[in-house]
Design a protein around this nucleic acid. Structure first.
Lengths: 334, 334
DNA sequence: CTGAAAGCGCTTACAG
DNA sequence: CTGAAAGCGCTTACAG
């Protein structure tokens, strides 16, 4: 077992011949220390490989620089775009001295052993990925008064969120499709969340704005995984029974569609146009390369981290935001 | 600013009419508390939403249940298989009450603002993904005597690691290819790491064991990203200038190869066989579906977390391990 | 430029 | 079954 006692500020004090307070000054780089003192103390610190105890420090400095990112795992996990965003958030947090802890949370699991509950006194703020209906985590955070933000819209009016502007994104896509005479659209979408409802509304409004009947749009929910997408496409489409275009809510899922259409000898975009969402890096290398709606990963991460910093500082006057996406035109649309 | 003072054990003590020590007993679920006392104290705890202060607790309990996972980011980031493994590790850690912090580390960046250095007193053990040559992180961990393990082999004899058995994996692949008369092999590999050298040695030894000249194998290093793979395949191969098989060290990179061969009108496996590594979930949905070497993600994560637990407990008698992989036969090999 | 004392919020070790 | 005291390793507030 770890019997070795840690080196403390008192050890450094005794060995260097100064008081603990002076050692503390040196450790924290305060200015009012005589140069020779600074050097003597630093020497002892290095010799003993002294590391200040974070717990003791944090017990006094009440600001909690730890951010918990809680990700609701779903069947489709892990998802590429989340990790792209996560990496950007990590980089941004590091710039501002925030530590990140990532936790994957199963919707069915209780919070009992979660970092969220076991380390909650320790967390300055949290980010919730995918708000569930009647989300336990959000109830817990509210109860314990831990500030948090949701990524991707919240059903609760008082909850802060950062999101893509899904409505606008799909409105623009709808207009683009109608311009290209692609009027029969199937949307393959995961769960009936706020984000996804916004996406549907966006296309519908675009069609209406162009004088088209909304019946041209068929919405299929519960297409969550690559396999769901493959199965649906394999079973529901044939070369002679296709819409003009298919929107798949997630570039990764298009892999399942591509596979099904390969088996069915359906050609994209000759037989049907396909559009994704996310713009994950390899969508460009699909055959054909994928037309998709790109998330502004860097912008989103900046908005998220900016809010985290304010939340940790106790600022409550923050507002939610939805960032614009970009329609990226490639080969998969006629 | 956060002016609100936190609720402490003293507040609960005062309001419930018991001593701080008794409140502590209730909070920690100790047995020797009268039922009525337990209930009274619990009531006050709930009313005030009391959360024990983790820092104060940890200041006393010397065991540090925080695990830092430090991932060397590379150009190809984020990489699917790492996140699959990470998720399994997270699940395994949670079972054992370990908290995980994930940090992405740029090789060029200093450690100054890293969680690793700023929170090192706080970390019970670390996992290093991708040991770099003369790795700063490892020097730091050794110096500060923080126990750690490396995923994927270490160049240092005294460093603990958990890895795939890359040699065995590629030896078996080599035998499989030779059996199928696929004798001209190109290997598209990332950096010249120990893992990758083992992979090359494995195929070479298999060829030798089958009486074949090693010159049949062409090894191409520095193919790191999907784009590298695309470029290399597009520039170096034609329909009439192909080996029998191509091994790509990473299923994700095969997306680049697939795209290049789509453009070059090269058919897999008719014109050339292709084999990947990792068995990420969507490799099955490639067209054609990808023959690949599957990592034992669950097994690896169990071995990693098992060692972390021992390291945190101060156990030094641990040994490195290499786990067997599985060759998964699909459509991409003739 | 330096230091002695008190306190952060818990738990350990001891006493009854 | 319950509690008073000391201590974990720092920093704050004050003094000189």
């Amino acid at each position: 077992m770890n019997t070795k006692r840690n080196v403390t500020i008192y050890d450094i004090a005794k060995l260097s011949g100064f008081s603990p307070k002076t050692v503390s000054r040196v450790v924290n780089g305060e200015q009012n220390v005589k140069k020779s003192t600074f050097e003597k103390v630093t020497k002892v610190i290095n010799e003993l490989n002294y590391i200040p105890n974070t717990y003791a420090r944090s017990l006094i400095n009440k600001t909690k620089n730890n951010v918990l990112i809680s990700i609701q795992s779903t069947e489709q996990f892990p998802i590429k775009w989340i990790h792209i965003l996560l990496e950007k958030i990590t980089i941004e947090c590091r710039k501002h001295g925030l530590n990140i802890m990532v936790e994957y949370h199963e919707p069915t699991e209780s919070l009992e052993n979660s970092i969220l509950s076991s380390s909650s006194s320790f967390i300055g703020a949290a980010v919730i990925f995918y708000e569930a209906i009647n989300d336990k985590r959000i109830r817990f955070l509210k109860e314990k008064e831990i500030p948090f933000i949701v990524f991707g819209k919240s059903s609760m009016a008082d909850v802060l969120y950062v999101s893509n502007n899904d409505y606008e994104a799909l409105f623009n896509l709808g207009k683009y499709l109608v311009e290209r005479k692609l009027k029969k659209l199937v949307m393959l979408i995961a769960l009936e969340t706020l984000v996804n409802k916004d996406r549907v509304r966006g296309v519908q409004d675009a069609f209406r704005a162009e004088g088209l009947d909304v019946d041209n749009i068929e919405v299929v929910y519960n297409i969550v995984t690559i396999e769901d997408t493959y199965r649906y496409c394999k079973n529901m489409f044939t070369k002679f029974n296709l819409p003009d275009a298919i929107f798949v809510s997630g570039d990764e899922k298009v892999i399942g569609l591509n596979r099904a259409f390969f088996e069915l000898d359906i050609k994209i975009p000759e037989d049907v146009s396909v559009i994704g969402f996310d713009n994950i890096p390899f969508a460009e290398y699909y055959s054909p390369s994928l037309t998709t709606i790109g998330q502004d990963y860097v912008g989103l991460s900046k908005e998220i981290v900016d809010r985290l910093i304010h939340l940790i500082a106790g600022n409550t006057e923050l507002s939610s935001i939805e960032l614009s996406t970009e329609l990226i035109i490639r080969e998969s649309v006629k």
